[in-house]
Simulated assay, not measured.
Amino acid sequence: MRFPVSWRVTAPLSVLLALLGGCAATGDDKPATTASAAAGPVALTNCGTPVTITKPPARAVTMNQSATEIMLALGLQDRMAGTAYLDDRVLPEYAAAYAKVPVLAGEYPSKEKLLEVAPDFVYASFATAFGDEGVGDRAGWQKLGVDTYVSAAGCSKNTRPAKLTMDDVFAEIRDIAAIFGVGERAETLIADQRARIAKVSAGVKGEKVLWWDAGNDAPSVGACCGGPAMIMSAAGVTNTFAELAGSWADTSWETVVERNPDVIVLVDASWDSAAAKRAFLEQHAALRDLPAVKDKRYVVLDFSSTSAGVRNVLAVEALARGVGGVGS
């Protein structure tokens, strides 16, 4: 993806001065794993971009579901000047905190809109947030003294993990906690999620799972290396299409029939609902006779549970229980 070399916006002088006042220095490439507001700068390399935070941000803006929910899970709503772009409703346990944060736009805000709230940190789940259809490239924000962060899972192809794991999600939570000086909150959250995953995956026997994301003619399925594969691995099941490259990949229904999955994950999204997927399977001449379809062995997961973040554990729990793990 090409980003503009630079960009200019017209904004009130007071806003620009506020932004320039928070200018951060360039740091080394050691990942941050601990946090303390008094411990000095936090230096890390994020998606190939060196980032040094000289002090915990006070006016952060989040874009995308996972970034927003990680901030709320760490109790950082009081440090948020705004948020944007949800795919689903915020988890119920964070709803009250989320209600206190200004929503800047339904999708990505304009650069001008973002400048209006004078952010000192912009955190997104996907690199596209800083693309031509987003708020402008990271280098432009750095020139204004605004630090940025992108989820490792959402980095460009050459800088994201070769195969996403829950440890990558936990590393992101630790990074954000370090940046805001709340490291102990991250460790509490991570310990709880690790324990929940270990408990629910006990008894899972590697059942074959088809992760159906979208598409009727050529189904897009969970492939080897992204969020779906990470969730399936954590749940202890076998990914039916683990040999396909990428996070998602297209296959054929003939291949699905040949592989005969034990359980089918139906991703529920506003543009392609789980109910529509289920109806398609049960009316298709070849698919309706699959044991998983005849026995209605479905696990419905929200689209947002695929993005690296705090709700991945909910997807792991639902999937493990759906195949007969502890607590099913």
Rank of each mutant, 00 (worst) to 15 (best):
W7P: 02
P12G: 09
L16S: 09
L17K: 14
G22F: 00
A25M: 00
K30S: 08
P31S: 05
A32C: 11
T33Y: 07
S36T: 07
G40M: 09
T52L: 13
P56T: 11
R59C: 05
R59P: 06
T68I: 15
L76A: 11
L76D: 08
D78R: 15
M80Q: 05
D88N: 13
Y94Q: 14
A97Q: 12
A99T: 02
K100D: 06
L104P: 10
G106I: 00
K113P: 03
L115F: 12
F121I: 03
S125F: 12
S125P: 00
A127N: 13
G131S: 12
W141N: 02
V150M: 10
K157T: 13
R160A: 07
R160V: 00
A162T: 11
G181M: 04
G183D: 09
E184Y: 01
I190D: 01
D192E: 15
R196S: 04
V200H: 10
S201M: 03
G203E: 10
A214E: 11
S220D: 10
A223K: 04
P228R: 01
A245T: 11
A245F: 00
W248G: 03
D250R: 11
E254Q: 10
R259G: 06
I264A: 02
V265T: 02
S270Y: 01
Q283D: 13
R288K: 15
P291Y: 07
D295G: 00
V300D: 02
L301F: 00
S304N: 11
S307F: 14
L319P: 11
G322V: 08
G324E: 10
S328T: 05
